[in-house]
């Protein structure tokens, strides 16, 4: 056991602050088991060192990884389904009307984790429009190289495909690959995965018609939130659409966005002249 009481308390406090989830005393082994892979990835010997490292050099990205490792088991497909419903019911028809038939639609799944969001978008568009394969390109980015590689591979465990993926979509878009499931090649070709740190200057990408930037901003302080939103906006088309997490908003952070209610969810669009 490498985890001291002080380190465990620090993890408890962070998890409680960021997710409102309470880790009871006695869950030290859970913290150890879930955080050890992150420590190893960072080249650290154990979870104690990981905690020390993040305490002395605060890093929103690493804080986020710690919180996610302790609060979510697997990412869901169609996580909070409303932003995906809005994509096919409102956003796609609007974009198809505004763009020429040969223009490519560019979509960005920012902080893509293991790729469920990017492939959810790919499946929906493949089912909603003919020639999606040649009309759509989806860029999936994450800070973690491991996550980028997982997204690129498009392989998911049995537990992962059970999470919120409708069975008809599973059989239509996936094949068995030993004990896992693999996204079909036509969808994998639509998705390009690369490493990207949202808190630093962004690489040249886009311009994007739609950006999914969900459950990321909550981990950053106000000035970083503002900087991220500004950089994201500079990579978007003027009539593009931004989806944030259900608990996130641009209101009070960056006033150069217009909030649009789409059914049960909402999107943000760059304000003209802002």
């Amino acid at each position: 056991m490498t985890l001291t009481a002080t380190s465990f308390d620090w993890v408890r406090q962070v998890v409680h602050r960021e997710s409102a989830i309470v880790l009871q005393p006695g869950k030290e082994y859970l913290v150890e088991a879930r955080l050890l892979p992150i420590a190893r990835q960072m080249g650290l010997a154990d979870v104690g060192q990981l905690v020390d490292s993040v305490r002395t050099r605060p890093s929103p990205e690493n804080t986020r990884r710690i919180v996610e490792a302790l609060t979510t088991n697997e990412t869901s497909w169609f996580r909070d389904g409303d932003p995906f419903t809005a994509l096919t019911t409102t956003v796609l028809p609007a974009l198809q009307a505004a763009r020429g038939p040969a223009e490519r639609l560019q979509i960005w799944s920012a902080a893509c984790s293991s790729g469920q969001e990017a492939y959810t978008i790919a499946m929906l568009l493949e089912d909603a429009m003919p020639n999606a394969g040649s009309r759509v390109s989806i860029t999936a980015t994450d800070l973690s190289r491991e996550m980028v590689e997982r997204t690129r591979a498009g392989r998911f465990s049995q537990l992962e495909v059970n999470r919120g993926l409708p069975a008809p979509m599973l059989v239509r878009h996936f094949s068995r690959a030993s004990s896992e499931w693999e996204v079909n090649a036509n969808l994998r070709r639509m998705v390009t995965a690369t490493e990207c740190n949202l808190a630093a200057p962004l690489p040249r990408m886009g311009p994007f018609d739609v950006v999914y930037l969900r459950n990321v901003l909550i981990y950053f302080d106000l000035s970083t939130k503002q900087a991220i939103l500004r950089r994201v906006r500079s990579l978007m088309r003027p009539d593009g659409w931004l989806f944030l997490g259900a608990a996130e908003t641009t209101l009070g952070v960056d006033d150069s966005w217009e909030r649009v209610v789409l059914g049960r969810s909402s999107a943000y669009r760059p304000l003209k002249g802002a």
């Binding site: 082994y29 088991a33 088991n73 465990s157 030993s178 004990s179």
Partner: peptide, 23 residues
């Protein structure tokens, strides 16, 4: 099939049936 695959299969079964925190 190899041992690594059988092990990941067993781990998932354990999480599902025995408990989400069972290792």
């Amino acid at each position: 099939i190899d041992g690594t695959t059988v092990q990941s299969i067993a781990e998932e079964a354990w999480i599902s049936l025995v408990g989400e925190e069972e290792v």
